[in-house]
């Protein structure tokens, strides 16, 4: 069989290309953790400054948490994904009080910082 038409051969070559790409995207995801952490802190500060958790602020926070939960999971960062999920669930819930939200923000911040300081190749 022609080497180029051998499905097993093609699959393994394509598989390696995909794995390289995955590793690259994963590194970029980690590099972005610092930006994400800063964005969440900025949003959190607005809340702390007395802005009510509604309208654009609530929407932006929820979307960011949702995006982070999904993408962290896709790239295999389970604890970060779970932290973002918890925050998202609380934000979508009927009551998101200060007492409930603060620990969730802390947790998310800690996970993002841990990612930022981790070796992105592992």
């Amino acid at each position: 069989m022609n080497r180029l038409t051998d499905p097993a051969e093609t699959a393994s070559v394509a598989g390696q290309v995909f794995l390289d790409r995955l590793a690259h995207l994963r590194r970029r995801f980690v590099e972005r953790a610092r930006e994400d952490a800063a964005a969440f802190r900025a949003l959190r500060d607005r809340r702390r400054a007395g802005e009510p958790l509604e309208g654009e602020l609530l929407l932006t926070l929820t979307r960011r948490a949702h995006a982070l939960a999904g993408s962290a999971g896709v790239f295999g960062f389970e604890p970060l994904s779970e932290a973002a999920h918890r925050l998202e669930r609380m934000l979508r819930g009927p009551e998101a009080g200060e007492a409930e939200l603060e620990p969730l923000f802390d947790r998310l911040d800690a996970e993002l910082s841990a990612l930022d300081s981790a070796d992105p190749t592992t």
Partner: peptide, 11 residues
């Protein structure tokens, strides 16, 4: 809409 996830799925 997430660029990195989109790239991952695409590849």
């Amino acid at each position: 809409d997430h660029d990195l996830v989109r790239s991952l799925l695409t590849s």
